[in-house]
Every structure is written in C-alpha cells, then in structure tokens.
Design a binder for these strands. Structure first.
Length: 286
DNA sequence: TTCCAGGTATTAC
DNA sequence: GTAATACATGGA
C-alpha cells in the first residue's frame, strides 16, 4: 500500500466525486474508495491537500493526476464563463467543482445505462455490472472488493439475459451493441479524440441508445471536449428557469442558447449548472 | 398507487 | 423538422 499527496487550490474532491460524472465511488467517512482504470484507489482531502492511496508499490501517480485533472488551471476556465447571476450563484455554491477525465469505454458503457434512471439507480446498475462482468482489482486488506469496468469483449460475449440480470432493462441490447462495436474494432474510441466535436458526436450517435445527450456526456467526460453541453432534464429546467422565466422556449431555442451563451468552456459551465441545481436547489425549480 | 428518473427510437403530423 | 409514446426498473 502506497500513498501520494498533492497540493491543490480550488479543488473540492467531495463535490467532484459526487456530481454525477462518475458512478463507482463510495464514501466511507472522510475517504472515497473507487477504481481508476484497473487500480483500486482511496482518496481524501484535507484543506488544500489531496491524498491518494493504492494497493501495492506505486511510484508513478500520473494516472490519478490525469483522472482528477490536478494540473488544470480552473481559474482560466472559470474566467470564460458568462458573468450573469445564475452562473455567479453556481460558482459561489460549487467552488472547487472539477471536471474529471475518464476512460472512454467506461464512460460510453456507463452513460448508455443512464437514460431515464435516477443517479442512485445508475450507480446500482453500474456496480452490479462491474461485479458480474468486471475483473476484480487488487484491494488492500480490510477494504471491500472492487471491480474494474468490464472489458468490451466480455460484454459483447454476454447474453442479453445475463446483462438484464444487472437491472439495466431495455438498455441491455444497447450496451451489448456498443461492446460489440468496440470489441470488433468497428468503433475506434482512440481515434475519436482527435476529431472535431461535431464529427466525434456524429460517430457516437450511430450507436443505438446513444443520442445527443449521452454523446455529449461521453465527449465531455472522456476527452473533456470543452463545448460538449449535455442537455438533460435538470439543465433544461435550469435554463428555462434562469434564462427564460415566464417565456415558453422551444427545445430548439434552448439548444441554440446552450451553444451560444456559455462560451468556449460551455461544457464546464454545464457541470456547474447541473451540480448547482441538483444538489443545492433540489426541487426548488419547476 | 402514482409519478418520474442525467433519454432514445419509433411513429405520426 | 417537431410533437407523442413505449420502454425496464425502482426510488420517492
């Protein structure tokens, strides 16, 4: 078991791991346990120090730095946000919230399971999927078992019935199709990273079960495409209430607004809006 | 019990 | 192109 610490500024680990970006972190008291890639890790924060602990003898911690985006200059990103009352309120309420950078296949598989499900249920399904089909990762004594996200080959070979046993319902054939596409090589996720955002989104949307919202989640979470702006029910409510009060904007109008109002880092702004309304306002919106 | 959840595919105007 | 509907499952 090895540990490493970093000095951070404007980083709120708790908000970040609890903001609906990633679905496999468990909070135990003051620490978070999860899996990055194929490695178990325990994370904690005290003030401006983040500590990571992993199993075995670890000398290179770049995988944690990359996942948590510890080198990102958040100030220069926030500076691009629109200076309006809703964004100011979200910034005040969510100080230190960060965008993670996650594995593309894990994000694709996880967000396919997210449609019309509550976040708590998405977490349950993802946990069941990893337990059933994922390889166990090395965990220090005294900690609960943990599993890597299943490899696409494994899910491609699984029967739809076995997938449905993980409670994913009608999304099972979608996940299986995505796994087959990646396993067969007909979808090369590595190559998507270099494409313009609209082209990358179009490729993802060819998959069944992947529409504009899920595609934007993947683009944002896996490669941090700065203008990928997932339009989900929460953000739609926020846009209507914050920016179109008393009006009745069409979906097209809201989509256009989301792509023009929030600047070059609109995707990051979306993360702030999403977390702000979901955690801090709850049902205060209609 | 009823409603709805980080939507998408399908069908109908 | 823009609107209704079904879709599994279970939390609230």
């Amino acid at each position: 078991m090895t540990s490493h610490t970093w000095h951070v500024e404007d980083y709120d680990l708790r908000s970040t791991l609890n903001s609906g970006q990633a679905f496999y972190w468990r909070q135990l008291g003051e620490v978070w346990e999860g899996v990055i890639g194929r490695r178990w890790v325990m994370l904690s924060q005290r003030g401006s120090t983040i500590t990571a602990t992993s199993a075995g003898n670890v000398s290179d911690w770049a995988w944690v730095e990359d996942y948590l985006q510890l080198r990102t200059d958040i100030g220069s990103i926030i500076a691009t946000f629109p200076k309006d009352p809703p964004m100011n309120a979200a910034l005040r309420a969510c100080r230190g919230l960060r965008l993670l950078r996650q594995d593309p296949w894990e994000v694709l598989g996880s967000f396919i399971l997210s449609s019309t499900k509550q976040i708590v249920q998405i977490k349950q399904v993802v946990a069941a999927l990893r337990r059933c089909f994922g390889e166990p990762v090395r965990v220090p004594a005294g900690h609960g078992a943990a599993f890597a996200f299943p490899r696409p080959e494994r899910l491609a070979a699984a029967s739809e019935a076995r997938l449905r046993a993980c409670k994913m319902g009608f999304r099972a054939p979608y996940l299986k199709a995505a796994a087959e596409a990646v396993a067969s090589g007909s979808l090369d996720l590595e190559k998507l990273a270099g494409l313009p955002v609209d082209q990358a989104r179009a490729v993802l949307e060819e998959l069944p079960g992947v529409g504009p919202k899920v595609a934007d989640c993947i683009l944002l979470s896996a490669w941090n495409y700065p203008t990928a702006f997932p339009l989900d029910v929460w953000v739609l409510r926020a846009l209507k209430d914050f920016y179109f009060k008393g009006k009745r904007p069409t979906l097209g109008k809201l989509r256009e607004f989301s792509q023009t109002h929030f600047g070059e880092w609109s995707g990051y702004a979306q993360l702030y809006l999403f977390h702000y309304i979901r955690v801090h306002l709850r049902r205060g919106l209609k």
